[in-house]
Design a protein around this nucleic acid. Structure first.
Lengths: 71, 71
DNA sequence: TTTAATAGTGCATTATAACGCACTATTTTA
DNA sequence: TAAAATAGTGCGTTATAATGCACTATTAAA
């Protein structure tokens, strides 16, 4: 897939907060295996998983109308 | 789950564009059954499904740091 | 360096998302 | 109204997400 943006948001935010995968897994309630898989760019996480991670990181998952390419 | 915000974004955007579920299903490549299920508040869509729908609607799925002003 | 901590992978199991089909329910239109 | 269009559901199948375990790889600290 092409969720690199989502993946990077999660990973960057986690690292900025100096939290390990293990800790984030515990905080969010997402399995460590699942988080590892996700951060290493594999898989296709469900909204629930994304939501749990976002929550633990003080973030939120949103749909936005795409900017009309401001050149 | 509690993705009412995501669900509503999709639904509102679709209706604003006067597109039926059937048409959106075709445009996005998401099965009609899946879209119906999603819009009726059931299930736990994958990032891929969310992405396909967002794409077809000219939207994007993003993680954002939560605003610290929930007054 | 060596060691400890953290990150990433292979495998197997279980739960469930995605799906089509055939149907009912609701909403819109003539 | 009636009928046509659109939305929502039950059921069964298939594909795969989530998970734990045990391992290897990489990175940071002593």
């Amino acid at each position: 897939m092409h969720f690199s943006n989502l993946i990077n948001s999660i990973k960057e935010r986690r690292e900025m907060l100096k939290v390990t995968q293990e800790t984030l897994a515990e905080l969010s309630g997402v399995g460590l295996r699942t988080l590892k898989q996700f951060e290493s760019g594999k898989g296709n996480p469900t909204a629930e998983t994304l939501h749990k991670l976002a929550d633990a990181l003080g973030m939120e998952l949103t749909f936005q109308v795409k900017k009309t390419t401001p050149e």
